[in-house]
């Protein structure tokens, strides 16, 4: 009996972790948009923490990524659009983090032990803002694409009442 029940624990752990991570990512995307609310220090460190969160998010979704990458052209239109959307989101997040590192005034100078550049690189500042707007939009679309999964996971984790309300 104990052996038959054993697989349920990793599944529950995995679901909880994935759901919590996704919720943290959603909150972080919104928080990172408002530097005045978080302050520059939290903004930059949270931005760097996003790298780990996104990699973990992608590792949890690896089976989907691998299977779709192998057979992209025989998938349905919805799956292909979803794949393209996720790829665009990854590209946009990479662009935001890359440009953020280039204009960092707190976190990166602290990590590499130098002083922040006296003058901001305004080109990268502009592109950082631009790409971050794309990230919010594409993250919203990403949530929309996976809404059924979110509902099912919320129902499983928090009970049928909350799931039904959503």
């Amino acid at each position: 009996m104990a052996e038959a029940r054993a697989p349920a624990k990793p599944a529950a752990w995995r679901l909880k972790t994935t759901f919590g991570l996704d919720a943290a990512l959603m909150g972080s995307v919104c928080a990172l948009q408002t530097v005045r609310f978080t302050g520059l220090v939290i903004h930059e460190w949270l931005g760097l923490a996003m790298i780990a969160m996104i990699f973990a998010h992608l590792l949890f979704s690896w089976s989907w990524i691998a299977s779709l990458s192998r057979r992209l052209f025989v998938q349905s239109a919805r799956s292909r659009i979803n794949y393209l959307l996720n790829l665009s989101l990854f590209a946009a997040v990479t662009a935001v983090i890359f440009s953020g590192i280039l204009i960092s005034q707190k976190a990166i100078p602290a990590l590499i032990g130098t002083n922040a550049a006296p003058d901001m690189d305004w080109r990268w500042d502009y592109l950082h803002d631009l790409f971050s707007q794309f990230v919010v939009m594409l993250s919203g679309f990403h949530l929309a694409m996976n809404w059924d999964w979110v509902l099912a996971a919320a129902e499983k984790l928090f009970g049928r009442v909350l799931g039904a309300r959503l």
Binding site: M26, V29, C30, Q33, V136, M137, S139, G140, F141, H142, L143, A144, M145, W147
Partner: peptide, 11 residues
């Protein structure tokens, strides 16, 4: 709200 707006548009 902006995030939710884009999710709604996506839906």
């Amino acid at each position: 709200f902006l995030f939710v707006f884009w999710a709604g548009i996506g839906r």
